[in-house]
Each structure stands twice: as structure tokens, then as C-alpha cells.
């Protein structure tokens, strides 16, 4: 599995982390091509089922990237997302899937660098874990 390239779904909010991704692009900051961004109006819209669907349909990792705490455009969306991420992690543990495959990050629209850094960090972490147990059995 040396050449394992994970597939990582990112739920990214319109107001902060998606803007940060845009900025990373404008600044020509490189980040791993493993991530697939799903733009959402607010991370508060990301439900437990959305995250589970991403995993069931083949993602080796998922993260939700919202605004910095205290700066959510909809005030509490990112706090709600953080709790749901924790809930999903608990669900995954119950069926013996590493909870670390799902993470929550916070960043501002001005942090293009952080967007790239998080993408690298998550890609590295998931590479270390190897393919999702769901992807192993089908291959």
C-alpha cells in the first residue's frame, strides 16, 4: 500500500473555508489533489447522514471545514458541525471504523495557507491509516 492515494471528502462552507480554498488557489499554494471539496452554505447544514454517505460511497477520510469559532456567518453553524462530527466519530467506532477518519477544522476566509496545510495534514494522516475498511474488502 505504499502508493495508496486516499480519497478525502471536504465539506467546506461558503463564507470561510471555501473562500480560503479560493485564496489558496489565487496564491498558487499547492495542496494534495486527494481532496474533493463539497461546498455547503454553512457547515451547520452538514448532517450526520451526509458524512456517513461520503464514507459509504468510498471516501477514506472526511473533514468538515468551517469558519473560526465565533465567526460563523450563521452564528452557530460551525459549533453544530463540530458536535455532529463527534457524533459520527462515535458511530464509526461502534462499527469498528477508525473515528480519526472524520475530522473538524476551523479557518478564516483569509487563511489560504491554513486550507492547504489542513489538506496536507489530513491526507498524510489518512495515508498512514491506509484505505477505509470499506474500500479494503471490495478490492
Amino acid at each position: 500500500m505504499d502508493n495508496f492515494e486516499p480519497l478525502i471528502a471536504v465539506f467546506s462552507c461558503h463564507y470561510c473555508s471555501y473562500a480560503a480554498a479560493d485564496l489558496a488557489g489565487s496564491l498558487r499554494i499547492q495542496y494534495p489533489p486527494n481532496i474533493r471539496i463539497i461546498k455547503v452554505p454553512c457547515t451547520g447544514r452538514v448532517s450526520v447522514n451526509h458524512i456517513l454517505m461520503a464514507i459509504e460511497s468510498g471516501s477514506d477520510g472526511v473533514y468538515v471545514a468551517g469558519c473560526l469559532k465565533g465567526t460563523c456567518h450563521f452564528i452557530r453553524g460551525n459549533y453544530k458541525a463540530e458536535k455532529r462530527v463527534q457524533y459520527v466519530r462515535d458511530l464509526l467506532s461502534e462499527i469498528n471504523i477508525e473515528p480519526e477518519r472524520v475530522q473538524m477544522y476551523f479557518m478564516s476566509a483569509a487563511e489560504g495557507n491554513k486550507f492547504a496545510e489542513v489538506a496536507r495534514e489530513m491526507t498524510e494522516a489518512v495515508k498512514k491509516m491506509g484505505p477505509s475498511p470499506l474500500n479494503k474488502s471490495s478490492s
Binding site: 456517513l52 459509504e56 462499527i95 471504523i97 475498511p133 470499506l134
Partner: peptide
């Protein structure tokens, strides 16, 4: 979804 993921594993 959890049931399907468990069985798939």
C-alpha cells in the same frame, strides 16, 4: 448506512 457499512467490512 451503518448496517451496510458493517456488512461490507
Amino acid at each position: 448506512t451503518l448496517i451496510r457499512m458493517d456488512r461490507k467490512q
